[in-house]
Amino acid sequence: MIIFALLLFTFQVRQTDIVVVTTFGRPARTETEPGLKFKWPYPIQKITRFDKRVQNFEDDFEETLTRDNYNLLAMVYVGWTIANPSNFFNSFPTGRPETAHPALKGLIRSAKNSAVGRHTFSDFISTDARQLKFVEIEQEMLTSIKDDALKRYGIGLEFLGIKKLGLPESVTQKVFDRMTAERQREVERLKAEGEAAAMRIRSKADADRDAILAQAEAKATEIRGQADAKAAESFAAFKQNPELAVFLLKLNALEQSLKTRSTLILDEGTPPFDLLKGQSVQGGAQGTAPQSTGSANR
């Protein structure tokens, strides 16, 4: 009996619900807080439940015209709630969210058309982030219908975003043609650029090699110069008796030059071979250097 009475006189408001209580069909009050609530039994009072959570809605993918007369297809999504249950109930008495969709669609279409119509095509796409108005356009659409949706239908628009953008079918084909042509140009550019860059690298490498070798030669010359300078210091000792020094240096040079296999073509009188002619070492004491008339190394 108690249970039966409870069922007749009470109802639950779930955390996610809003309930509109009507007395003989007229909205009497709205219950937004969850819990167990009182009501007069049917048919005096009747309750209608609404989901108060954010609902998702997507409109149609439709053509609109940009300010610079480009046909652009756009589809947006919105998150909406029942912000004013009484208003919403008056507009959509069944409480089913889908009954609000046509109204939402109408609102969004007009917002979309007017927002897109205020912007050029380049506002939707740009490499420069400062020029891109993608987010601003979304915001404009939302702002333009937010108040209207609340006043007319009790619908609160929480967020709006562009879900899809597109071009008319015939335009896509032209875009493909352009893309193909661009790729062709790209192929040529890449080829030319590659060859030029490779050439630059090679010639720079050649120049660098020459520079490295030239520097090395210079360094080697410098080192040799240092050696010559140091040798000059040693040569100072030879000043004591230049005649002996020259004689010894000549002998040294002769010895060095004949280290490898050589052929000497000599005059018979060249000492010490003049001995072969039975002559004495006459004049040898004066010490003349070998008088070769020619020599050839092989």
């Binding site: 004949l258 050589s262 052929t263 018979e268 009188g269 071979f273």
Partner: peptide
Amino acid sequence: RVMTNTTKWFIPQ
């Protein structure tokens, strides 16, 4: 020393 390794040709007078 140096003549050891050389081939020698003499030009007669």
